[in-house]
Simulated scan of single mutants.
Amino acid sequence: MSEPAPRSSYANGSVANIVRSLLVIGVIVAALIAIVPRVNSVSQPPVDVPGASVEVAKESGWPIERPVALPDGWKATSVRYVRSTGGLMTWHAGYQTPTGNYIALEQTKDATAAWVEAQTNRAAHTGEVQAGGRTWGTYVRSGKVQNSLVHRAQGPTELTTIVTGTGTFEELEAFAGTLRPVRTS
């Protein structure tokens, strides 16, 4: 029978051995962190507002609008047709402006005061402006950066339209000026 190998002095469990082990593990972890690639920014898939708007216009039969020929730098970020405040179906298209602000288009048929209040985040009515050939009410939410333009339906064949977000009123008005009816044919 052969004699067992002598026991290593590193197996004695001293504080110095624990510190050396932790240092080795730390070097390995640091090396792994250094070589694993990290994402600097998250990009979302492109949002097809024109395609979605045609489908919603066909499905709803509403005269919905969408922005046409926005200047360079505007990026579509969201689009949906969902039930909103008071059970009202709402057409929504969201955009990031060239300055990094957010602007959304919200439209519904037979809008209630509660729906307008919810979309403007209970903002105070502050005046009126002209944009895109229409008169818009201006709304400012104090304490939170949210500006809104509200054009209330003028008849049974028109939708209430809200342009809202963190954009400046100049950006909101420029956006409102690009709104055009969606053609379904």
Results as ranks from 00 to 15, higher is better:
Trp115Thr: 09
His92Gly: 02
Pro98Phe: 07
Gly87Leu: 08
Thr77Met: 12
Glu106Leu: 10
Lys58Phe: 00
Trp62Cys: 06
Tyr95Arg: 08
Gly132Glu: 12
Val54Tyr: 04
Glu117Met: 14
Ala76Glu: 03
Gly132Lys: 12
Val129Glu: 12
Thr120Glu: 02
Gly73Gln: 06
Gly86Asp: 11
Met89Gln: 07
Ser142Gln: 15
Pro63Trp: 01
Pro98Thr: 10
Trp62His: 12
Thr112Ile: 06
Asn40Arg: 07
Ala76Cys: 09
Thr161Pro: 11
Ala34Gly: 15
Gly137Gln: 13
Gln107Arg: 06
Thr161His: 08
Gln119Glu: 14
Val129Arg: 12
Trp62Pro: 06
Glu128Asp: 14
Gly61Phe: 03
Ile35Cys: 02
Gln146Asn: 10
Arg152Glu: 14
Ser78Gln: 07
Ala111Val: 01
Gly143Cys: 04
Gly61Ile: 07
Pro71Ser: 13
Gly143Thr: 11
Gly127Asn: 03
Arg80Gly: 14
Thr112Asn: 05
His151Trp: 12
Ala153His: 09
Leu88Gly: 02
Gly132Val: 09
Val68Gln: 14
Ala57Leu: 04
Val42Ile: 14
Thr157His: 11
Gln154His: 11
Val49Arg: 00
Gly155Cys: 09
Ser41Gly: 11
Thr85Trp: 04
Glu59Thr: 14
Ser41Met: 14
Thr157Trp: 02
Pro67Lys: 15
Arg80Pro: 00
Val39Gly: 00
Thr77Ala: 15
Arg152Gln: 15
Glu128Arg: 15
Met89His: 02
Gln154Trp: 02
Ala131Asn: 06
Ser53Gln: 10
Gly61Ala: 13
Gly155Asn: 12
Ser148Gln: 03
Val116Lys: 06
Ile64Met: 00
Lys58Leu: 12
Ala111Asn: 00
Thr161Phe: 04
Ala153Lys: 10
Gly137Lys: 11
Leu149Phe: 02
Gln107Asn: 04
Trp136Ser: 06
Val150Tyr: 07
Asn147Trp: 03
Thr138Ser: 09
Trp136Pro: 04
Ile35Gly: 02
Val140Ala: 04
Val47Trp: 12
Leu159Cys: 01
Val39Pro: 00
Ser41Arg: 15
Arg122Ile: 00
Thr99Asn: 13
Thr160Ile: 07
Glu158Ile: 08
Thr108Met: 03
Val145Lys: 13
Ala69Val: 09
Gln130Ser: 13
Lys58His: 04
Ala93Thr: 01
Ser148Asp: 02
Ser78Phe: 10
Arg152Ile: 08
Val54Gly: 08
Arg66Met: 13
Trp62Met: 14
Gly127Pro: 06
Val49Lys: 07
Val116His: 02
Gly155Met: 10
